[in-house]
Design a protein around this nucleic acid. Structure first.
Lengths: 261, 261
DNA sequence: ACAAAAGTGTTCAAAGTACACCCATGC
DNA sequence: GCATGGGTGTACTTTGAACACTTTTGT
């Protein structure tokens, strides 16, 4: 098979702005109505969904790119929680429909197809935890952008299903380090809400009573003198996070609690 | 500041073989005489040391590159333990001595300087655990290759000191998942040897008696009917790993024991 | 005999698990 | 009153931490 000269003029122009060969893939996770949600996108002409993603600008690091993608899609700024969890590369022919869709997720007018014509590109993967209620979805003209329940994902392109599974298994290993409640819930929340996050992530039921005791014992959660009326049963108390403590722990990367629940 | 056309003919040739802009950095760790050792390299004309590393070939994934680098420097094949732990990018001018050294670590004849002339490149970082005794160091003509005690590292280029610290802190979070003994020790080993690995990694002393009980209780270690004479004291028993169990656990990424020691 | 380090056993405290019982709310 | 689900307490089990005592070996 004959090989074209890999770098064309148009590519030279593209790489003035972006680092070629490298994409950033974001698993944007939120929490609503007892379920973990993942934000996916889809080009209107296609019927398969993709993780949000894009390229790295020449003047930013990969983390910056991930934050930029997050902000452009959801309006959430840099205070969201972000974590690298995987990288890999794969063959990629621009002629291949699957890969083309993947590349066109973002910056579609700016990136010429031959940006990846060399047959390989590297994917840098992140998961990001955001407050669902704060998100204002902002789709481009050519795309759809939608939250999906993690237990009812649509058909996904290529490796993206695998990436989601991998992220979840990485997250499970780190339960003690990640302040899920702080990242996923609004300021005021109830204990059952917090618990259902952990249940969704761990994929199993947790004892209501023991969970409550443990959460209160680590000292990052304050009870408020309020309750939330929500149904034919006792109204649960509202709690809030001691933000300063969480921030300090985040900076030092300290373990908040044991990994057992 | 005027900008040269980023892609020259020589670069076009180079990228027929390698993926540009991306380097793989390996923290190769071994264990000897009670200390964690890290394999570093240095070009003869320089006096600062670097992590081992290289570029990604067009026909391989990043993990393949890491294994290839490992094998070319130490002779250790794919059965070594490898784990991605970080990626980032940084500004990089080939004219800058520091970066030039970094790039010249490997493939020096093949990679033209302008491989990275665009001012940015991404580093993909791994740590690798190997059996020190099995390593046969193979340096190129132009370089030196040497084990350093992790507590007595020489002056390192750029970000490499930071990467080592980051790797250690990632490893600490995963004590329960990584079978250090299996990866770092020869087939037959004593309990004090195993313990001193954990002490070196965790950076604190562990209770001899409790450690032994815990290690035996997880069922991955078998006592042998042998001892090793080594000094003016009772000879410690030799143990060996139940390899099948370790392999099965590795594939399933199962937690071997709690993270507490 | 003594020092040095391995091996065994015991005890206490902390953390995790299970479950009984009471409370508040809407129908 | 009753179903639903929150809140508190207690008893049991497992795990971890501290440490006393014994054993083996070289000098």
């Amino acid at each position: 098979m004959e090989r074209k000269a890999p770098f064309t003029e148009s590519m030279n122009r593209a790489v003035e702005t972006f680092v070629p060969y490298i994409s950033v893939d974001c698993i944007i996770m939120g929490f609503d109505a007892g379920c973990i949600k993942i934000l996916l996108c889809k080009r209107k002409e296609s019927d398969k969904w993709l993780l949000t993603g894009g390229f790295i600008r020449r003047d930013e690091g990969p983390d910056d790119s991930a934050y930029r993608i997050l902000e452009s899609k959801t309006g959430i700024g840099r205070d969201g929680f972000l974590k690298q969890f995987y990288f890999f590369n794969k063959k990629c022919n621009a002629g291949d429909d699957e890969n083309l869709m993947m590349l066109k997720r973002l910056d579609v007018e700016e990136i010429p197809e031959n940006m990846v014509n060399l047959g390989r590109f590297v994917s840098l993967s992140y998961y990001l935890l955001v407050k669902y209620q704060d998100v204002e979805i902002a789709a481009e003209e050519y795309e759809e952008l939608e939250w999906f329940d993690i237990n009812a994902l649509p058909e996904l392109y290529g490796t993206h299903g695998m990436l989601i599974n991998l992220a979840v298994s990485e997250i499970r290993k780190q339960v003690g380090f990640i302040p899920f409640g702080y990242e996923l819930l609004p300021d005021k929340f109830t204990m059952p809400e917090l618990r259902s996050i952990y249940e969704a992530i761990l994929g199993r039921e947790l004892d209501r009573r023991n969970f409550q005791r443990k959460m209160l014992s680590i000292g990052y959660i304050q009870p408020l003198n309020e309750v939330r009326k929500e149904g034919a049963h006792k109204s649960p108390h509202l709690y809030t996070f001691v933000k300063e403590k969480y921030r300090a722990a985040k900076i030092k990367d300290v373990q908040l609690m044991s990994n057992n629940l």
